[in-house]
Design a protein around this nucleic acid. Structure first.
Lengths: 152, 152
DNA sequence: GTTATCACCTAATTTAAATAGTTTATTTTA
DNA sequence: TAAAATAAACTATTTAAATTAGGTGATAAC
């Protein structure tokens, strides 16, 4: 990981479909050299993959909510995690320190959809004894960038 | 937006660098037809762009935290939002309904780094009178997929 | 001091993207 | 209802990029 790798990564975060030729001319290198470096970054697992970024609002998923969940017993966790994996509306599930056990980020069509996820999917699960939902009114910033200035 | 568009989108979410030729042969179409459809999806804003997905742990950003923030006066918001935009560690900033005003997702190197962001960056801002930090112990699920089965 | 190794290069080949022109089906309009 | 327009696909061609192969120079290992 040198500064050239950081520049390549940064370019690919900004434009995941950029061609090697394009990167090569921006960074004053040959295309095969870029291809080599990218292949290495992929093999090292630094670059996990590439993805199209979608506009959830345009696709009808205009509501975002965070749901904190408490689970009473260890043995209920597996079922909960299976449900979370299954639910396409659950974009993120984090095991949290502090008051609640899990923090979910949910993307859904609206309040009815959110109600269904909470009442019919999550609260039906054994062990789920408490949920706290925070509805998002607007999103000011949303990236998956990582600071790439410091050393590695 | 027909079922073919959904298939194309879904493929490009899974592999953002897939070639038109590849998509074409998977979906029994010609490459120019795929290119046309993708161009339209981009123009409509349904596909916002493409990005490389990075492994934050491997890059040294092994700590994730959510920070709830309360701000006391309207006129302090602009400065807060400017700071949030500036901080590379803040991946998300949502305006939330409920007890606190904003919910931040922060990706940082460790506890020292998190402390700096909270104590030196955020709590220094005028109007920020309350923060509540939830540290993430592990992440079970993390995608930016949107359910693509229902109609649009 | 010789030999490996690494990261790059150029040149050639293979593959994909972009463009242009055509066909077909569907919808609009006379 | 018939004619025209539109939309979305196709094929064939051109242009551009990716891949591969072979070679060079610097650095590290023996």
């Amino acid at each position: 990981m040198d500064s050239l790798d950081y520049k390549i990564i940064s370019s690919l975060v900004d434009n995941g479909r950029s061609t090697w030729s394009e990167l090569a001319s921006n960074l004053q290198m040959s295309a095969p050299a870029i291809a080599d470096r990218v292949r290495r970054l992929e093999e090292q697992g630094i670059i996990k993959g590439y993805s199209a970024l979608l506009d959830s609002e345009t696709l009808g998923y205009g509501m975002t909510a965070f749901i904190s969940i408490s689970i009473d017993r260890m043995e209920h966790r597996a079922l909960f995690l299976a449900k979370v994996a299954e639910l396409a509306e659950v974009q993120e599930c984090h095991h949290a320190a502090g008051e609640d056990d899990y923090l979910l980020k949910v993307r859904c069509r609206g309040t009815k959809d959110l109600d269904r996820i909470i009442s019919e999917e999550l609260r039906q699960l054994p062990g789920v004894f408490k949920t706290r939902t925070t509805i998002i009114l607007s999103t000011v910033k949303e990236t998956h960038n990582i600071p790439l200035t410091e050393s590695d």
